[in-house]
Each structure stands twice: as C-alpha cells, then as structure tokens.
Amino acid sequence: MSNLSTTDRKIDPDILISFQGVNKWFDHFQALKDINLSVKQGERVVVCGPSGSGKSTMIRCVNQLENHQQGTIHVCGREVYSNMKQLEQVRREVGMVFQSFNLFPHMSILQNVTLAPMRNGKISSAEASEIAMHYLERVQIADQADKFPSQLSGGQQQRVAIARALAMKPRVMLFDEPTSALDPEMINEVLDVMGELASDGMTMMVVTHEMGFARKVADRVVFMDEGRIEENCSKEDFFTGGRGERAEAFLSKILQH
C-alpha cells in the first residue's frame, strides 16, 4: 500500500464513495481492473454481473474487508487505507449487510444491535437499547428482541442485520447479495425493508441479482464482468436497451425464467 498517496484530495462533499483507478489481485488473479466509480449522497446504485465478476470484491473494498493494491478509494471524504484508526472511523460511517447475515450467534437480537453503538459511541446501555429498539421496530422485528439469531428465520435474521448496521447511523449502506441465501418466500420481506430505506433517502450500494428491485429502487445500474465495470448508466438506459452486448447476454440469462 506504500504507493498510495496519504494526503486526502479535496473532493466533492456530495460524493460519498469514489474509486479511482483501483486494481486488486488475489495472488496472480486480477479481481478488479481499473475501477472508477463514484456514488453521490442519496444515490442508489445496484451492482450486477455474473458470478466471479468482482462485484462483491468491489463492494468489500469500500470498507476494506478486502484491501486493494493500486488506486485510491475515498469514503465520506476520507481515503481508506490500512491505518486502523482511520479505517475504524470509515467503517462506522458505512453499514454493511452480508449474504450470510453474520449475526453474532452468542448474543441476543437486542445485543447484536446495541453492541456497536455501545462500544464505538461510548453510550450507556439504556441509550443503546433505545436506539436499537427504534431500528428493530423499523425493520419490524422488535417483538423478537430477546431471542437469539438461531431462533429466527433467514429473512428475520437479515432484517436484524440491517438494523444492526443502521444502529451506527451510517451515511452509506452496502448490501452484498442480501437475498441470495434466503428461501424464496423470505426475499420480499428483506427487499421491502431495503426499499423503505431507499425512500428515506439512504445512500445505498447494492450487489444483487434481483432485477425487479433494481427496476424499482435503483438510480443507477453498474454492470461488471471479469473484474471490469462494463456498464455504468442510469436505470432507464440500462433497462430500455442502452446496454452493451455482455449486459444483454447476462440479463437474458437471469430474466429467462
């Protein structure tokens, strides 16, 4: 990471996430190739593409669950790099929801949500509980607050995971295939919560195959293939024909049935 500049460039304060010339390798395999992308305040960006195209890797670079080797990534005006203190700051402004929920199995639902505000914000447990219950109500699961993750269904767990991320009051939410591990009948309850979040004006970056969701909620669609951003256009352009060959082929595959 030594080749990264450590001085933060002045960038448009409206741009919450920006990638500039980002490259990433897993050993000899190049997972991301010259990624340039910015996400503005309030924008909803859906990232799609075939598996192995680098979309999860890209979204995971935003909060540095994966480290990139070349290029710069700015989040909320700060450059992310492996300085732990700065990275922790960035991560507190970025909420993330995973494909496999990743709730903490040894904690109750309420504890799952209160942990980060208590540890990071140094607030009392009463205050944290209040915040947590607010967000649990928002994802309509407040009545399960005393249960443990293993007692909930997949859809319920994912909604708790969303509440857990929201409790840090993030400026951006990242969703890494949030519905891919869910049984079909539970997908909608999660998408509904995400849609509500979007209509409240949350800035969102969503990796998903749910094209219906993209149609309804997205402002912009990014299509990736083989580690490159192939398309980066408005939802209207993407769904009404202004897309390239590869995107066409991908869409026809997933929309067929």
Binding site: E88, F98, L115
Partner: peptide, 12 residues
C-alpha cells in the same frame, strides 16, 4: 463472517 461483521460495524 464473524470477523467481517464485527469489523464492518467499526469495532476496534
């Protein structure tokens, strides 16, 4: 995933 989720919420 447990490490990742814990890091993602900004825990030290």
């Amino acid at each position: 995933g447990q490490w990742e989720a814990a890091r993602a919420v900004g825990l030290s």
